[in-house]
Nucleic acid binder design. Structure first.
Lengths: 174, 174
DNA sequence: AATCTCATGTAAATAGTTACATGATTTT
DNA sequence: AAAATCATGTAACTATTTACATGAGATT
């Protein structure tokens, strides 16, 4: 269901787009909250069209199909957004690794944490660069929230890794 | 692969356990980073046993099987933990919803954000309660990192939702 | 005796990944 | 002319969810 909603959401906020566009949009916007390959996106768009939630308004060169969200599609995404249910799937391999840190010896755990700090800082540099450059008006509002959450999440992770490393270091010295 | 590693990790840190125990451990510890039902856990444990990464050392009443991690299992989890690869899957439906907030009208988005704040605060109360009560020695180190990250994540989310709500309110007043 | 919790499993369906397949248009 | 990018798709495999199925032991 989430993939459907992600696609409807992107079409709703960014306007009409092709499967190819959506694949790239996925990568450049919601990538850190949800991932999908073109091999999953194309069939899903066909299903969405069959269900009347999107339409192909335009066919361009190289077989390009431009999808547009329909009234029914808009109603569907709106209802999903307003549905409050605690049944939210959350999977994060990085966090999983963090949980399993105690399986390692202190020196090994330290190395993993330091690597995490480095990765977070690299990601922060990218996100802060995006923050500085003005975005195209079409995705402005959308990008704002996404970016802000991404920045906060990455900083949180970096701080946790750094402080946990310090704690382990202190403990192993005593 | 992640489910295998989660199971090996839990067995490594918490000691021998049954599929039933592991199902509950999953829920009570790494639930916010990874989920798995018993219908996925039981077959995976059988595969792990077939691959020699765990053994059934003990069979109890009601067909209970107590799994223990083997030397090879320990080597496997250790290698996975030390492998740094940027190929980490991360899926979070809550964050996805946050991204799609611009599909809603400001008043609706506000309501969703306020609900998010309430949910985070409820979750924080639970986590802070766990933090206060002393844990059993067997899962102490494990619980520490998991809990700390969970607390930080939930606070980050709450603050983001609250501040974003304020921002939308300010914007809609002008 | 009934109900609850412990305990394990399988089957069917949906979701997601990896690999294969093809061809048009644009850029160098 | 070659290489890069645009563009869509399918097949096979793996992962995950939902629903079905069963029975033992403990508690009320």
């Amino acid at each position: 269901m989430s993939l459907r909603m992600a696609l409807l959401g992107l079409l709703s906020v960014s306007g009409p787009a092709s499967g190819y566009d959506l694949t790239k949009l996925f990568e450049s916007t919601i990538n850190h909250a949800w991932q999908a390959r073109h091999s999953q996106i194309y069939p899903e768009l066909n299903k969405l069209a069959a269900d009347g939630l999107v339409t192909v308004e335009e066919e361009g060169p190289r077989g390009r199909k431009t999808y547009t969200i329909t009234e029914e599609g808009s109603r569907t995404i709106r209802e999903w957004m307003l549905t409050t249910g605690p049944a939210r799937s959350a999977r994060d391999e990085k966090t999983l690794r963090a949980f399993l840190l105690p399986t390692l010896k202190p020196e090994e755990a330290l190395e993993v944490l330091r690597e995490t700090v480095r990765e977070c800082e690299a990601k922060l540099a990218v996100l802060e660069e995006i923050e500085r450059r003005p975005s195209r008006p079409r995705t402005a509002g959308f990008g704002r929230y996404a970016l802000d959450l991404g920045l906060r999440h990455t900083r949180m992770m970096r701080d946790w890794a750094a402080e946990t490393a310090e704690e382990i270091e202190r403990a192993s010295r005593s």
